[in-house]
Design a protein around this nucleic acid. Structure first.
Lengths: 87, 87, 87, 87
DNA sequence: ACGTCACTCACCAAAC
DNA sequence: GTTTGGTGAGTGACGT
């Protein structure tokens, strides 16, 4: 009996699996890069005399503002759709 | 009293601040993209019949493996330093 | 209006709450003790001539090893479950 | 050349080293237990209808209060000592 | 939709 | 005092 019969995945599946894992790991590597970028930006800001904690708070606030606006827009769209109105 | 006297940051600082915030937000937007990519990859894998949970386990295990290698290298460096040896 | 009407918790709930807080604080006090113990051990090791940094590296490496084994077991479990096998 | 000459640590040192590592790991295992205890307490509180986040805030506030009292007491002691007064 | 779970971030203490 | 390790909190993803 040949060796490959012990494998529950055929060669195509194995290759596909390998591709999936590598794609995920590539994306995660890029995520790590982005984190490093962000760290660098804040470090640079700090060395320019900015309060990093305050900067982060600003970013966070703007994020929730965006989320709120999107939420409000979604509700508005829903209502407009309900009354058959095109915005 | 003119408006600008309320500002504790001069115009240069304001522009710099704006740049910092925008750079961070750009990076965070890219992070969101990466998350979406990863989500897509797993969704596609799932629709191909793969067990997403198992795939994630594989990715995590490989990450732990890398961490272990890094720790081993770190301890090696520590020991070499401890005995005054240049690697 | 009597004072107790300001309380949203009845006496039982208040007593229960007190118990919860005290249990948590007791546990946290023990955590502080453990941290002090660990500090003492390292201080003693240092005074015996050991390189504390290297010791900590060893402890961390061993921890990573354990994590790796756990991940391996977890992925094994996942696979066994995926193929409907009881371990 | 005998094997033991390759070891930079003699047998006593090796045994001592082993003891140190094991003591640290024992303490860390107990720390993990305490964390698990705390988790259990909060989980139980949650199932009793308490707001875990609020409970944690209470614990945190009481901790900083204790720290503040200790700080104030320390200052008081310093002053009393400075004027030759026994509290 | 809810609760759980993993992940990342923010804060704090300790080391150099 | 700057930096690193560790803990706790908040966030997002996922299954039920």
């Amino acid at each position: 009996m040949a060796d490959e019969t012990k494998d529950v995945l055929d060669q195509n599946a194995q290759a596909q699996l390998k591709t999936i894992i590598e794609r995920v790991e590539r994306v995660e590597a890029e995520e790590a890069e982005q984190r490093a970028f962000k760290k660098d930006i804040y470090a640079e800001a700090k060395s320019s005399g900015y309060d990093v904690k305050a900067l982060k708070k600003v970013v966070r606030l703007r994020k929730v503002d965006r989320a709120k606006r999107q939420e409000e827009q979604a509700i508005l769209d829903t209502y407009c759709h309900a009354i058959g109105e095109v915005v």
